[in-house]
């Protein structure tokens, strides 16, 4: 039986004007999952629910097999969290923030923290408010990594980072899961990060899961088909997830290229769908089927 670092079943959270509906997915140990979706899809809401920062209306969340509410303290000591806009007491120095946080974690590794600080080029004597967004993100990452978390939950961790550090971070995440017991869940808009790093992709759209699949499976089964208007005949239409019509041809996204392939009209062009293609198709600009 596969062991999951994180398992979510039937999660629901209602806000005025937005509902996260029946979200279910599982993150196996030793893997990295990218949580993607357009703005307002519900990525941050899912992350906040995992950390019990907001209350769920329905559903179950377990981390390493334990309920996140019933065993909140024990679970949070195993989670490293980075918020999309890192916020600490602004007029505190980095040294003081670290000193305030460290005693709360049993597995805090002071040596690792110091080496991360030095590697990231962070000035411990500086006030948090004096840092750029990228530096704040790096500091937040150093705190998340220094207590040897088993599950890293990162909300847009690469936003605001320069390309060099972004790549280093992604390599670090890949290195981290060499330890089979650990796992990473990160939300992002930068789909190229997912292509290089993620093992699983969970795609959220308007509060609902579109899919949660291994990345390889997505590449094998999802495709963009380009052809003339005959593409939309009654038999093929149900096999498309989204359609974009131009004056000259039709582009359609399918999640079942194996079935579709045999029935396609002559001259139809099939292209592998990238994560970005899927995001663009599922979002505005494509008529949902």
């Amino acid at each position: 039986m596969m062991e999951y670092a994180l398992e979510i079943k039937g999660l629901r959270k209602e806000y005025k004007g937005f509902t996260l509906k029946d979200v279910s997915f599982a993150l196996p140990r030793g893997t990295i999952m990218g949580l993607v979706g357009p703005n307002g899809a519900g990525k941050t809401t899912v992350i906040k629910l995992i950390l019990n920062l907001i209350r769920r209306q329905a559903g179950e969340i377990t981390v390493f097999g334990e309920d996140v509410i019933a065993r909140e303290k024990a679970i949070k000591s195993r989670i490293g969290f980075v918020h999309e806009t890192p916020s600490f007491v602004e007029d505190a120095k980095l040294r003081d923030i670290a000193a305030a946080v460290a005693p709360l974690y049993e597995r805090w590794d002071g040596g690792l923290f110091r080496s991360l600080i030095s590697e990231f080029g962070l000035p411990l004597g500086k006030k948090f408010k004096k840092l750029s967004h990228g530096m704040k993100m790096k500091f937040s990452l150093a705190l998340a990594l220094a207590h040897e978390a088993d599950l890293l939950v990162l909300d847009e961790p690469t936003s605001g980072l320069d390309p060099v550090f972004r790549r280093e971070l992604l390599e670090r995440l890949s290195g981290l899961i060499q330890d089979e017991g650990k796992a990473v869940l990160f939300s992002t808009h930068i789909t190229s990060d997912l292509e290089t790093t993620a093992d699983y992709i969970t795609f959220l759209h308007a509060g609902e899961i579109v899919f949660s699949l291994p990345k390889d499976e997505i590449h094998e089964t999802w495709a963009v088909v380009k052809a003339g208007p005959e593409l939309l005949n009654g038999k093929l239409r149900p096999l498309f997830r989204a359609i974009r019509e131009t004056p000259h041809y039709i582009e359609a996204l399918t999640s079942d290229i194996r079935t579709l392939k045999a029935a396609l009209p002559a001259g139809a062009v099939i292209e592998k769908a990238s994560i970005e293609d899927i995001m663009v198709f599922m979002d505005e600009g494509a008529a949902h089927v």
């Binding site: 906040k48 950390l51 019990n52 920062l53 909140e72 303290k73 024990a74 949070k76 000591s77 989670i79 969290f81 918020h83 806009t85 890192p86 916020s87 600490f88 007491v89 602004e90 946080v101 709360l104 974690y105």
Partner: peptide, 16 residues
């Protein structure tokens, strides 16, 4: 904590 919007960070720490 309210002023600096630090509540999310505080509640992500291993405390109830």
């Amino acid at each position: 904590e309210d002023k600096f919007k630090a509540a999310a960070f505080n509640l992500s720490l291993p405390v109830t």
